[in-house]
Amino acid sequence: MRSDVITAQAQGATGDLTGGSEPVRSRRTPDSAHARRHRLWSKIVLYTLLCVLSIPFIYPTIWMIFAAFKPTDEFFRIPPTLFPETWTLDGVAKIFTVTPFAQQYLNSLYLATVITIGSIIVCSLGGYAFARIRFPFAGKLFLVLMSGMMIPGEVTIIPIFRWVADLGLMNTHIPLIVLPIFGPACIVGVFIFRQFYLSLPGELEEAGRLDGLGRLGLFWRIALPLSGPAIAAVAIMKFLASFNMYFEPLIFLRSEELFPVGLGLTRYQDGYGEPLYNTQIGATALTVIPVLIVFLFAQRQFVEGLSRTGLKG
């Protein structure tokens, strides 16, 4: 069912965020003082609204950065404080000793990279086949894909847990890599690519054929190089999802050295089970800041990549 949605989406919203001329302004009659004041006021209202609305989105991140340098008893104050009264490095100092934080961060990066690349390969191949190649059982196989999407992941975890155990793959990264690349989580990616390849003009491939390209050549030389937006969308989606992975590692991993960073964050306690508030929050900030910095630099490509092909589902 998802494919139609995506069709609809592709027709409804393939807009470019930066594009769109505004004929309205040019048609306006010369500004009267009244109209100018009116516009000034509406601007003020709009900006105030935007600023107020921004608070719940950015305050938590700012708070966590400063909280990392607070002693624990400053976490809960009335009135609440943003900046530490007494700056301390006690919490931050323990980040790397209480759990193998650096290793966990690398684990997350490595898992997310492998999963993203693997997904792009699997999804682009599948999407291309279903969009542009005529092959037997295409319709039926497509139906198989779609039905897989309706199976909630937490349901099938039980048999998969058992298989992983039987194969001796517990406490390894293998199930964490294989599941998101090949499992039902990959279907959405296939759809995104399929949708994209459906919209490629057939003339391109015909020209390729005349140049003597075979099927593989058409995919490799013509379709794939053009699929930047689809790759971007799938890559962003997959990278975010796998960097955030929590449920599967919780079940399949036991060694802290193998944890992704999200799961590691929940294990900040000292030997007696007392939570280390400022260490945990410091580690949380360290997890978030690099991603945010990358985002700030690449936000245009990021957001536009998403809106163009549509992380449509």
Partner: peptide, 23 residues
């Protein structure tokens, strides 16, 4: 085309079968 199509679609389809429908 039949061969290429099937083998292109195979990883995704088999994956969903083995990791979704069969489980």
């Amino acid at each position: 085309d039949a061969a290429v199509g099937l083998s292109f679609a195979a990883p995704a389809v088999i994956g969903v079968l083995v990791l979704g429908l069969v489980p």
